[in-house]
């Protein structure tokens, strides 16, 4: 069962209305979909179009899960500078009507796992970028949504936090959440994603499981990194 259906005809910004075009895909329950591509290919624009952050979108985006909600974890942490870390969790819990007992249990558990328990009553604006990124992830995990829309989550995370985050993504997949993950970390994408989409110049070039991509590239057993390189060098730019 799909939890997110994306049919974007075109999307972009004021002054540049067609950054991406013909992006069609779905994210199913218990599926992690990786969105990869070179810098400036349109990954972040796709993510922003899905969560309604850009005005110029032609097409249809549907959250069709049970709760019809999503958690968005942006690339750049954005937090209220006058609220403490715990107050962000309180706000997320209040807005998403999460029971207080669950907030206290799960919130504290997440803070311990991401090693932020000591600073829970500190202003989040006083944190390093990596710590702020952890807060964004915790907020997402606390909501337990149908869909996660995650843009470059590993930037700024230390190795241990990266491992914890991957573990949580897997747990959330087990719970039934669909996850759309934009990343440059091809090795991680290869390990955890059920399906990969490659965007180049605003267009969806390749889509499928790692085995399907290997077959498309005629590189059986190759890494995602090699397939990515092969598509970019041999197929896409030559035919272009």
């Amino acid at each position: 069962m799909s939890v997110l259906q994306v049919d974007i005809i075109k999307a972009g910004y004021v002054g540049k209305k067609q950054v991406i075009e013909d992006i069609n895909f779905s994210v199913k329950q218990s599926e992690i979909v990786g969105l990869i591509g070179p810098n400036g290919a349109g990954k972040s624009t796709t993510i922003k179009a899905i969560v309604g952050l850009i005005p110029e979108v032609t097409g249809r985006i549907q959250f069709i899960g049970h709760k019809k909600n999503y958690a968005y974890i942006p690339e750049q942490p954005i937090l209220y500078e006058d609220l403490t870390l715990w107050e962000h969790l309180e706000l997320a819990a209040a807005v998403n009507e999460i029971e207080r007992a669950i907030l206290l249990e799960k919130g504290n558990e997440l803070l311990s796992i991401f090693r932020l328990q000591e600073v829970k009553h500190h202003f989040s604006a006083s944190f390093s970028k990596g710590m702020q990124q952890k807060v964004m992830i915790i907020l997402g995990l606390l909501m337990q949504p149908d869909v996660y829309v995650i843009d470059e989550p590993f930037v700024g995370l230390d190795p241990r936090a990266t491992m914890e985050f991957i573990r949580f993504l897997k747990d959330e997949r087990k719970r039934g959440a669909g996850i759309l993950l934009s990343t440059h970390q091809l090795d991680i994408a290869e390990k955890i994603c059920d399906s990969i989409m490659l965007i180049i110049d605003g267009k969806l070039v390749v889509q499928g499981s790692i085995t399907e991509i290997q077959e498309q590239c005629k590189l059986p057993g190759a890494s995602l990194f090699d397939c990515f390189d092969s598509i970019l060098e041999n197929e896409y730019y030559v035919t272009k």
């Binding site: 942006p74 954005i78 807005v95 907020l139």
Partner: peptide, 9 residues
């Protein structure tokens, strides 16, 4: 504030 984006009011 941009932070409002992560909450769906």
């Amino acid at each position: 504030s941009e932070t409002g984006r992560i909450f769906q009011w």
